[in-house]
Design a protein around this nucleic acid. Structure first.
Lengths: 272, 272
DNA sequence: TTGTTTATGTCGATA
DNA sequence: TATCGACGTAAACAA
């Protein structure tokens, strides 16, 4: 393919019928700086943490400049096969077929071997590595409560944040005017049993640190699960413990932090 | 691009400089049956469970026939943005730019909007949906122990499998000649605190069901964590409980089930 | 459909 | 580097 507009600096496109030696050569030469995309009929062998074999089929193979390999079929969000960033792909020609061998050392030794029976398209292009801005995450909810503990407990103040325990980190610790302690666990999804179990362990730990009598403990340390929804079994367990569940959509907008997007989503979810 | 070899039945390839109306048309017409691939400079807005905005950059947009949308940059295994299978992408032309709007109803309402400033390549091709054969998974290890409990406890027999508890399912339950019960938890990766916590909850449940005295319990129910490796803190917790850790690479090959690939991997990991 | 668990999870933050 | 927990986790599997 010619390039009358001079766009060969931005992209290289080869159609079907190109000699595989040329594809192998371009792959080898460009894969450190460009993303390689090959569409073609291939089979794939993987051996590493698990093992797999994919039969002949038409797939997209993408090898990024950071050493990531992903292979996609006509379904699913996740790749059929892949290798993590930092992997090394080497093209070769075996018995008239293009073979790409991809090695990774991230988890011991892993290898993916792609053998092409037919290549329909191959592309090289420099892709961005910009990333993106996110909002509406667990951290945002945590920050919202941190700036304004009233959202969860009226008149409470923050006494701890990311508090380390043998069972993990407590998202937030609050204390109200009467000295009651609240262990806050935040999930940005419908909470299940594991979230409640986590909360129980945190509360047990705080109680053990406080070293009070049983009666005092039960009055003074309360688990609070903040999440959009909670499963039935999880709610049972939570209530049995005397804990509280709060849905962040009840926060509404505050002067401290805008949860507009989050609430927008929740409202839509409610409707569905 | 012409097609002297008649390969237009297998793939359509457009280079830079194609009118966006043609691309929009092909996208609309083919996206139900073919996977669409567009390489170009775009910005992306996402609103749904979270929100995000990606600035102008060169990216690969893939829209599969099952309604999956994925957008990749020049780094990382996971897509920058995506929509799950079953989503609907509609192309439009706005102020001379191609805009693809992708809606999903899987989690309430979610939308990804891709606006192209420049398109470098667009491809349509029918991809396979073959899937693959896997081995060396947690299930394989579970089946290996099930067929041959001696791998874990000499002379033991299987008395339970996928046993339901309030905290989740127990992978395997064994009993040895002396009547001791073993709760087996299998992980196919290095085990952390959560794995040990899970095991503790299972053992507590089995003990509570057995309703024996404290002394009897401590003798009779033993937690066994089967995993390739265990983190330091997790091991402390495990030992404090009097539980056992077993690495499946010690299984070796048995006449019941071949763990060849698994062991192959572990051996390589050891070396690294 | 719903809930639960696994995953070659991936990825980022932190000690 | 190893560990830990969140993720718009996704995908498989059982109920």
């Amino acid at each position: 393919m010619g390039s009358p507009e001079g766009w060969e600096r931005e992209i290289i496109i080869l159609g079907p019928g190109e000699p595989i030696e040329r594809i192998a050569d371009l792959f080898l030469k460009n894969s450190k700086t460009h993303t390689s995309i090959i569409v073609g009929e291939c089979d794939i062998t993987y051996k590493g943490r698990a093992s797999s074999k994919a039969p002949w089929g038409v797939r997209i193979v993408i090898y990024k400049a950071d050493g990531t390999l992903i292979i996609h079929e006509g379904r699913d969000r996740d790749p059929l096969n892949w290798q993590p960033p930092g992997s090394l792909c080497i093209p070769s020609t075996v018995e008239g077929q293009l073979v790409i061998t991809c090695n990774s050392r991230k988890y011991g030794y892993e290898v993916v071997v792609i053998r092409f029976k037919k290549i329909l398209a191959s592309i090289w292009s420099k892709l961005s590595t910009t990333g993106l801005e996110k909002r509406g995450t667990e951290r945002d909810i945590s920050e919202a409560i941190h700036s304004n503990p009233d959202l969860v407990v009226p008149g409470a103040t923050v006494i701890g944040h990311e508090v380390d325990t043998p069972s993990g980190k407590i998202d937030l610790l609050l204390r109200d005017r009467d000295g009651r302690i609240y262990v806050i666990e935040i999930k940005n999804e419908k909470a299940g049993l594991s979230a409640v179990n986590q909360l129980i362990r945190y509360v047990e730990y705080i109680e053990s640190v406080m070293k009070r009598t049983r009666e005092e403990r039960e009055k003074s340390v309360i688990g609070v699960l903040v999440s959009p929804g909670i499963s039935e079994r999880a709610k049972e367990l939570l209530i049995k413990q005397g804990f509280i569940h709060i849905d962040p959509k009840t926060f509404k907008q505050t002067r401290h932090f805008s949860l507009t997007d989050y609430i927008y989503y929740k409202d839509n979810k409610e409707r569905s």
